[in-house]
């Protein structure tokens, strides 16, 4: 058994095509990959919105904002 379909390299390379592991699962991997990507956006937006909401709730400090503006 070999996950790449070859248990030895006693082959003529002109007859060899795909050599990655778990051939036949490409579509599943794409589905999972797309889920990872979409999920990343969901999590990122949630995190960012939570951070902004927390900052908005914090007590406003004009002296801090003024210093940050002055610091450029």
């Amino acid at each position: 058994m070999s996950t790449i379909g070859y248990a030895s390299w006693a082959v003529d390379l002109k007859d060899v095509g795909a050599i990655y592991p778990f051939q036949g699962t490409e579509t599943i991997m794409v589905v999972l990959g797309v889920a990872f990507w979409i999920g990343w956006h969901v999590l990122q937006i949630r995190q960012e919105e939570a951070e902004i909401a927390a900052e908005m709730k914090a007590e406003r400090r004009d002296d801090v904002a003024r210093k940050l503006i002055d610091d450029y």
């Binding site: 058994m1 070999s2 790449i4 030895s8 006693a10």
Partner: peptide
């Protein structure tokens, strides 16, 4: 795990 059983070498007698 992911490459389980794949040949480690082009030479005969090597472990997979």
């Amino acid at each position: 795990f992911v490459l389980w059983g794949a040949p480690s070498s082009p030479y005969e007698g090597y472990a997979v």
